[in-house]
Design a protein around this nucleic acid. Structure first.
Length: 224
DNA sequence: GGCCAGGACACCA
DNA sequence: TGGTGTCATGGC
């Protein structure tokens, strides 16, 4: 079986098992970006509390976040953890958005994908995963997001590339799948779903998760 | 009471 | 390039 066939089979089995995930859980692109920053190394439930606080305070927009003192912003997002660091990150994003794009996400997203990625990566607090989440889930351009779950699952499946880097793993997906934004969206969400449903004792355990749920066979470096 | 969650950055060798 | 410490709340 070819790598392309493996990658598509994994997707089909996850989709059959869990169904469409309908990501990203947000009402608008700006909320996606805020969520992407707040969820860094943080459970989504805590992020929801923080976003709820921002909504209640009428602060879930670029202008309000820019005007709010950083300490006040930190208090609002406190449930998401690392609140001082994340308040600085939110500030850094809206500052760039305002100064370079007149506060318009449409103008920012008008950049072609490579330039958009470079621009996002140049902002404090936005690394590769967050940048790609913004590109895929907010700008709705085809970009595969690699997170901790993706690393674990591909490792367990024996699909991890030799060079253990973000770029290499991203290439595994993007070079072997159609460049379809909706496919990348659903695929990544399904990988996270599998990761979350894995037993706590053995994260993405071969015995209790991959084989039993999806019929994967990592020991053969292939799918059956 | 410990572990970990949809990372990024600074600093070091 | 790669490894380590830091940032921190909340659910299980």
């Amino acid at each position: 079986m070819t790598t392309k066939q493996n990658m598509e089979l994994i997707y089909q089995r996850l989709l059959d098992r869990y169904g469409p995930q309908h990501w990203w859980p947000a009402d608008e692109p700006f909320e996606v970006i805020i969520g992407a920053i707040l969820t860094q190394s943080t459970a989504w439930g805590n992020v929801e509390k923080a976003i709820g606080n921002l909504k209640k305070a009428g602060a879930l927009n670029p202008i309000a976040i820019r005007e709010l003192p950083v300490d006040d912003l930190a208090i609002l997002i406190r449930p998401s953890g690392y609140y001082n660091a994340k308040a600085r990150k939110l500030k850094a994003f809206v500052e760039r958005l305002s100064e370079s794009y007149g506060g318009s996400l449409e103008k920012l997203f008008a950049l072609d994908t490579p330039n958009l990625r470079e621009e996002l990566l140049s902002i404090y607090g936005i690394g590769q995963e967050t940048a790609d989440s913004v590109i895929l889930y907010a700008a709705q351009k085809p970009m595969f997001v690699i997170d901790a779950y993706t690393h674990r699952i591909t490792n367990r499946l024996g699909l991890h590339p030799d060079k253990n880097s973000y770029a290499a793993l991203q290439a595994l997906f993007m070079d072997n799948l159609p460049g379809d934004e909706k496919l990348f969206n659903e695929y990544h969400a399904l990988l996270v779903c599998l990761g979350k449903n894995a037993c706590r004792k053995h994260p993405v355990c071969h015995e209790c998760c991959l084989d039993t749920i999806c019929g994967f066979r990592a020991d053969q470096g292939n799918l059956v």
